[in-house]
């Protein structure tokens, strides 16, 4: 498969490479277990490049993002359509790379387990589908 490339806006810089976990909409508070990194829909953010199109919910979400890092179960990076203050605050404090402004095509293309590479200038690559 050819490598697909997308542009994004770096908010918290940092490079990352790993398998994708894809979520349409997420409230970090209430829907993510800060001890394990598991979401209430049964996915895991730990060690993944988290593709979260939109976030919502309580401002306590910043604290949850920070706790994920402290507990060693944070995502490698978070990629969004639009990042809101709750997520930005959590990612800056936790030092989790955060990129937003990804186009709708990216969210339509990317699947759970796809190998993603994120560069600090905002370039995002889908390197290929999940390995069997």
């Amino acid at each position: 498969m050819e490598v697909l490339r997308f542009r994004s806006r770096p908010i918290v810089g940092g490079e990352a490479e790993g398998p994708a976990v894809v979520i349409g909409s997420l409230s970090f508070y209430g829907e993510v277990d800060p001890e394990t990194g598991a979401t209430s829909s049964g996915k895991s953010l730990a060690g993944k490049v988290a593709v979260i199109r939109r976030s919502r919910g309580s401002t306590v979400g910043s604290y949850v993002i920070y706790a994920l890092k402290e507990n060693g179960v944070a995502p490698l990076a978070i990629l969004m359509e639009k990042a809101e203050p709750i997520v930005i605050a959590g990612c800056v404090l936790a030092g989790i790379p955060l990129y937003d402004g990804l186009p709708p095509e990216f969210f339509e293309r990317v699947r759970d387990g796809d190998r993603l590479r994120v560069y600090s200038d905002g370039l995002v690559e889908i390197l290929g589908p999940r390995k069997p």
Binding site: P34, S58, T59, V60, S62, Y63, V64, Y66, A67, E70, L93
Partner: peptide, 16 residues
Amino acid sequence: VSGASYMTIGDAGLRF
């Protein structure tokens, strides 16, 4: 500052 009750911010907030 809001989010000061343990009932709302929990252990994540406490550690933060």
